[in-house]
Amino acid sequence: MKKSIIFLSLATSILLFSCKKDETENKEEKVTTEVNAKEEANANVKEVELNEAQYSASKIQLGQILQKNLSDVVRINGTTELPAQSQADVSSFLSGTITNINVNLGDYVKKGQTIATIDSPEYIQLQEEYIISKNTLEYLELEFKRQQTLRAENVNSEKTFQKTKSDLNIERARYQSLSNRLSLVNSSPSSISKSLRIVSPISGNIATIPVKIGTNIMAGQSLFTIVDNSQIHLDLLVYEKDMPYIKVGQKVSFTFTNIDKSEVTATIFSINKSFEPGTKTVLVHANIDKVPETLIPGLYVNALVHIGEKTVDALPNEAIVKADGREFIFVLEDAHEEEGGKSYHFQRIEVKTGVSELGYTQVTILQQVPKDSQIVLSGAYYIQSHLIKTEGGGGHSH
């Protein structure tokens, strides 16, 4: 019995000793791991010093981490389009010959501005008929009043009175018709003119001029096209699988495929109710919040529809540099006056990157930095090159 108790006590002691040993070893291993991680992080921290001339030459731009919606988005493509009411095909209601063209391609014109003149026999005849009708109407109005007075005194016959009344009503209708026809050609003549003015129906830029001086034109023939690019919007093609996430009022960020990569924003205002012919895509329309002056219809765009409110820490792509299979940013550590000029000290800090869209990348800084730290947004590659050049890929520490 005593042997059993002694054996049990011995086993218990060995077990307790083993547990304490494992616990101690785990703590030591954890401390070692933390120390190694810290040493590895510190090993990746490099410092770079630039003098004032180098700083100016690098065109460095400083700033802070931005909040960007780069996560909850739907990525789609589309084009810039003009609504029908922002385009005009200018023609004449009358035939004639072009005598003057007052604009050139690309010129901006205002609504009602004269852009050409036409010599038109039809216009001359229309004015003649208008003036004759106007004078005839004045005569018939006076004659009607005279016949009305005579009829009240029972001097003339009812037939004569009714004939005068009928003639007056017919001439009034004819005069109104001629007035309307003249208003269609933007004219209300006091004397007969051979030249007909062609005016712009909208404000915008001249897009095409398919005629020249001396061209004989027919009524309805296209003379100019005018576009108002300030009303350009986006036509975006959304696939069937993404349609449940798209709603009117959502914000859209986009860049142009083949030109300036700057980001522009828009707001969805309409969603078509049917698929585009031959595709499984639906057309979604978005108003551009601030239309760039250089924007024209037909440009291809890459767009992100923001379907959520989640935002992430992000920096411009050019703020992030790669070295030794890792990614880094530079933070301004100090700037002070020295003999010979100002000196700038930058610290290279490792980051972890996430989603990248529209020129920005999600970042997580892997060591603590002050909230008001000035980060290099542009010029990071210059600093990295200087670091490699002066330190052989390393750096110096204080």
Rank of each mutant, 00 (worst) to 15 (best):
H396F: 08
I232L: 15
N287W: 00
A53Y: 13
D107E: 11
H398D: 11
L15E: 04
Q221H: 09
E129N: 15
I14V: 15
Y175I: 04
D107H: 02
G392Y: 01
S58T: 13
G393K: 03
I101L: 09
K371R: 15
P316E: 00
A266I: 09
P292I: 11
D260R: 11
G249D: 01
I217Q: 03
Y360L: 04
G325S: 13
T225H: 09
Q162P: 00
A152F: 03
D167H: 06
S92Q: 05
K165L: 07
K194F: 08
P277V: 03
I271T: 02
Q127L: 05
K38D: 11
V248A: 01
Q54H: 03
E52V: 02
Q54N: 07
R181I: 07
E339G: 09
R326V: 03
P316V: 04
S58G: 12
Q127N: 07
D313Q: 11
I288A: 00
D107Y: 07
N154Q: 14
D22K: 14
V48K: 01
S18P: 01
D260Y: 05
Q231K: 15
S193P: 03
L15D: 01
G325Q: 05
K241F: 04
R174Y: 00
T215F: 06
N51A: 00
K59A: 13
E276R: 02
N169K: 14
A43D: 05
N69I: 13
V31A: 12
G220W: 01
I170Q: 06
K163S: 13
S195V: 06
S397M: 11
T149M: 11
K342T: 12
E28G: 03
L387C: 09
G392V: 12
K30D: 04
Q64R: 12
K247H: 14
E327M: 02
I132D: 10
D119W: 08
T311C: 05
F330Y: 11
N180S: 15
F144V: 09
M218S: 15
V73W: 08
T279C: 03
A173V: 06
T149Y: 13
V376Q: 00
K134C: 07
V301T: 04
D372F: 07
I259W: 06
E23R: 13
I288H: 03
E122P: 00
N216T: 06
L366Q: 13
Y55E: 12
D235R: 13
R172Y: 02
L50F: 09
K21L: 15
Q384W: 03
S190Q: 09
L8W: 09
L387A: 08
G308F: 03
K261L: 06
T390Q: 14
Y382L: 10
A88K: 00
G392K: 08
K27F: 12
K3E: 15
K21W: 11
G379D: 13
S92L: 06
M218Y: 11
D260A: 06
V301I: 14
